[in-house]
């Protein structure tokens, strides 16, 4: 097990290295360098620059160094927490990202939890009671959940809530906490408001997981080892939990892998519709504005989260299934 994990972690290093080169290449893609783009941005706002200041700027940020050196400076900054400077926001990238990342992580983890808690019992029920009324009922609901686009669900939910329950919606906080400093009250307020985005973000993946769990469990229920467990005299409940469910659970563990990168790239439209202060919309804007330090940071985070997410789910899978770790 330990060797398996070590091997997987070592494999991550070249992967991340390659991704960082690619990301750096993308950052460098837009015409002109950081300084000229910064000047352009300022000029657009009516501020003027002379070439001397620009040159000083280039000195200060080592923009005249060869590409290789700049790459290592950039990646080195990453390791020390210096993520560069956002042209658009005119603040360090780390500062721009800070709170949004925290909220994004909270929203995603709560959504993942919601997805698991809802899909697990329904998936098991639908498989064990295949073709029952309940199975059909959840199948219909599940396909609806898969088919309805998130933004539409968001709009419908917002409409229903504002029409029948009153009050403004959108965002993760009530008005009085919007710009308040963090406090117990603000945290409670967050959890009062978070469930609409959680439902919107989580519905499709919940429906998906229900289908996958149902199909997997149905497959496993037909296996001879289940029949043997039954022939042993175990109660139906015990044997289903211990044997087929143990194997059918794998997609849940894999879902950890795609939830982490989804933190940033997922739910962008939902976040825009619901006006959520999460990372998705910011990422989209940074690319459109060619704010490459910010966009590059997002790309690196995305890549790293994908790699780490895959690692975590692989480790979980290896714990659940000895055939993987004995390979």
């Amino acid at each position: 097990m330990v060797t398996y994990i070590v091997r997987r972690v070592l494999l991550m290093i070249p992967t991340i290295f390659l991704i960082s080169i690619l990301t750096f290449f993308v950052i460098e893609l837009p015409p002109g360098d950081f300084a000229s783009r910064y000047a352009e941005a300022l000029q657009a706002q009516g501020l003027d620059f002379d070439d001397e200041v620009l040159e000083g700027f280039r000195e200060l940020y080592h923009l005249n160094d060869p590409t290789i050196i700049r790459y290592f400076k950039w990646i080195g900054g990453f390791l020390t927490g210096d993520l560069g400077y956002s042209i658009e926001h005119r603040r360090p990238v780390a500062e721009v990202l800070g709170e949004r990342m925290v909220l994004t992580v909270v929203l995603s983890l709560v959504s993942l939890l919601f997805t698991w808690v809802v899909s697990f019992p329904i998936g098991v029920y639908s498989a064990v009671r295949q073709y029952s009324f309940g199975d059909y009922f959840w199948t219909v609901i599940g396909f609806l959940g898969l088919a309805i686009p998130n933004f539409l669900l968001a709009l419908v939910l917002m409409f229903v809530i504002s029409k029948y329950f009153g009050g403004a919606i959108g965002g993760l906080f009530s008005r009085e906490y919007q710009d308040a400093a963090w406090s117990i009250g603000k945290v409670l307020d967050l959890f009062r408001n978070i469930w609409i985005p959680v439902i919107v973000v989580g519905t499709a993946s919940t429906a998906g997981l229900i289908r996958v769990l149902r199909a997997n469990l149905l497959d496993e229920l037909k296996r001879p080892y289940v029949e043997l467990a039954r022939a042993k005299g175990l109660t139906e409940r015990k044997l289903i939990i211990k044997y087929p469910l143990r194997i059918a659970i794998n997609p849940f563990l894999s879902s950890v892998g795609w939830v982490l990168p989804g933190l940033i790239s997922g739910a962008v439209i939902t976040a825009i519709v619901l006006d959520l202060p999460t990372a998705g919309p910011l990422y989209l804007r940074s690319i459109r504005a060619e704010d490459m330090s910010l966009a590059g940071t997002f790309m690196m985070f995305l890549a790293m989260l994908t790699v780490v997410g895959t690692l975590i789910s692989d480790i979980l899978l290896a714990i659940a299934d000895p055939r993987i770790r004995y390979d």
Partner: peptide
Amino acid sequence: MSALSPVH
């Protein structure tokens, strides 16, 4: 081959 659970 298949009458025993592969993960226990």
